[in-house]
Design a protein around this nucleic acid. Structure first.
Length: 458
RNA sequence: UCCCCGGUAGCUCAGUCGGCAGAGCGGGUGGCUGUUAACCACCAAGUCGCAGGUUCGAGUCCUGCCCGGGGAGCCA
């Protein structure tokens, strides 16, 4: 029986529960062991009376040990917990030397826990973290499945840097100590596994567009990779991204889906992870619960980029980077808009074309594109999306304008040549969502095994 | 990649002017008939990040490197 189930069982239930000991306290001739199996935040208090195990075995039931307990669920005579497990027999599945076990019963810094990522999952915070992550991941699928979206497995390995979203990791089977060369001295990739240079994907968007123009509504949810040398609390070399793509959908429909999506996720996590969220609200950031409820209940503000710049200029705020039309909206601007001015999530649309990607649909003014960013308190941009350029001629011109090689985009252009349709989509960084939901300050602490420059341990 | 801060016991940190290596927590031992991050007493525990340099003497000053954190750029 799992700990979660045991805690809800009627008094007198005979049960066997297995898990890991968080701490043991000896008082007189009785020992108390806190047992956790990851099923919930709370531990099951196991009461070990004298004679149940030998002295030698009791010494093995320390912090970190794995045990299986057979016993009776009884009402607890002491305050602190309504029920406890009175042990009849205990088998020690895996002892842990308390002197050497790296996780103590007291608090550790996140920096230290990161170095023991194989054990930090046994702590309260990371237990709660990864139950929330699981709930959110499942809610993502549920949201789209309930609306008839098709889940697309976009490729991990790609041979084209189509989006130009940043440095890519190369994928090769060539012998790096003995690279084949062309007569001109360049690496001869025709001898490589794919016959040309290959990379890990930076985005599934372009492939999602392919599927949207056949299945109407689709989404991807998978890992993406960036080889940028970014050393910040907001970047990972490997992270998970959710990218819905909808045919017959304009920017307004895109915006509405993004709002509905975020609200759905907030509702799911508030509904299913209350106890775990309360841990983050208590120890990490006391605005976690109120912010989630706020996002769930308040309508999102909607303004254009041009209005946003004007509001920022009229704000009287002393920004480090003075806002002006044509420049990107800085983090400090985003936070002013969403935390100070509107005090709720803000959707900013219609950005200048120079600061956005080539595939975003050009507006009739010829200066702005149908882009949208969803800004939320504390994090800033959490979603970026756009209506896509569906007109062949305009798209081709935009590719050329940005100095891109149009031959790389032949299949993407084909989508506009054969049965093109208005379509839109957006991308949500899953770990950024996790940071928003949990209040965690470092993205390395919301993914099981973070990959960053110089670090791919575990 | 650039700028700033840090690295001392298993963990979190103090270490004054260059002069004997410290505390709390954790761990061990003993005590306690119901504990709740238990409590009380005692005990053990150090390549002061690494490599050089200055000095009678370096945890402390200088140089280089490695690692961690924050900020910036890039972005999700």
């Amino acid at each position: 029986m799992r700990v979660k189930e045991a805690l809800q069982s009627p008094i007198g239930t005979e049960m066997q529960v297995s898990g890991w000991v968080r701490t043991r306290r000896d008082v007189g001739r009785i020992s108390f062991a806190e047992l956790n199996d990851g099923s919930c935040l709370r531990n099951l208090q196991v009461v070990i009376e004298e004679g149940v195990v030998s002295e030698e075995d009791l010494s093995k039931i320390g912090t970190g040990a794995c045990i299986s307990v057979r016993g009776t669920l009884v009402e607890s005579p002491a305050p602190g917990q309504p029920v406890e497990l009175k042990a009849h027999t205990i088998s020690i599945l895996g002892p842990a030397d308390p002197a050497a076990y790296p996780l103590s019963k007291k608090r550790h810094s996140f920096e230290y826990l990161r170095e023991i990522a194989h054990l930090r999952v046994r702590s309260n915070t990371f237990g709660a973290m990864f139950r929330i992550r699981n709930t959110l991941a499942y809610a993502v699928h549920r949201f789209f499945q309930e609306r008839g979206f098709i889940y697309v497995h976009s490729p991990i390995i790609t041979t084209s840097d189509c989006e130009g979203a940043g440095a890519m990791f190369g994928v090769t089977t060539l012998d790096l100590m003995n690279l084949p060369r062309t007569p001109s001295g360049a690496v001869d990739f025709s001898q490589d596994f794919f016959g040309k240079p290959a990379y890990l994907t930076v985005s599934g968007q372009l492939e999602a567009e392919v599927f949207a123009l056949a299945f109407t509504n689709v989404y991807t949810f998978g890992p993406t990779f960036r080889a940028e040398n970014s050393n910040t609390p907001r970047h990972l070399a490997e992270f998970w991204m959710i990218e819905p793509e909808m045919a017959f959908c304009d920017l307004d429909g895109n915006r509405k889906l993004a709002e509905e999506f975020l609200r759905y996720l907030m509702a799911a996590v508030l509904d299913e992870c209350r106890e775990d969220l309360e841990l983050f609200n208590k120890w990490i950031d006391d605005s976690v619960l109120s912010t989630l409820e706020h996002v769930l209940n308040s309508p999102f503000e909607h303004i254009t980029y041009t209005d946003a710049i004007r509001l920022l200029q009229e704000s009287g705020q002393n920004f480090e980077y003075p806002p002006h039309w044509g420049a990107d909206i800085q983090t400090e601007h985003e936070r002013y808009l969403t935390e100070t001015l509107f005090k709720r999530p803000v959707v900013v649309t219609d950005y200048p074309k120079q600061i956005k990607a080539f595939y975003m649909r050009l507006n009739d003014d010829g200066k702005t594109v149908r882009a949208m960013d969803v800004l939320v308190p504390r994090i800033g941009e959490i979603i970026g999306g756009s209506q896509r350029e569906e007109r062949y001629d305009v798209l081709l011109q935009r590719i050329r304008e940005q100095g891109l090689d149009e031959s790389n985009y032949w299949w993407y252009l084909d989508l506009r040549r054969y049965g093109s349709a208005p379509h839109s989509g957006f991308g949500l960084g899953f770990e950024r969502l996790m940071m928003f939901v949990t209040g965690m300050k470092n993205i390395r602490d919301v993914i099981p095994f973070p990959r960053t420059p110089g670090n791919a341990e575990f």
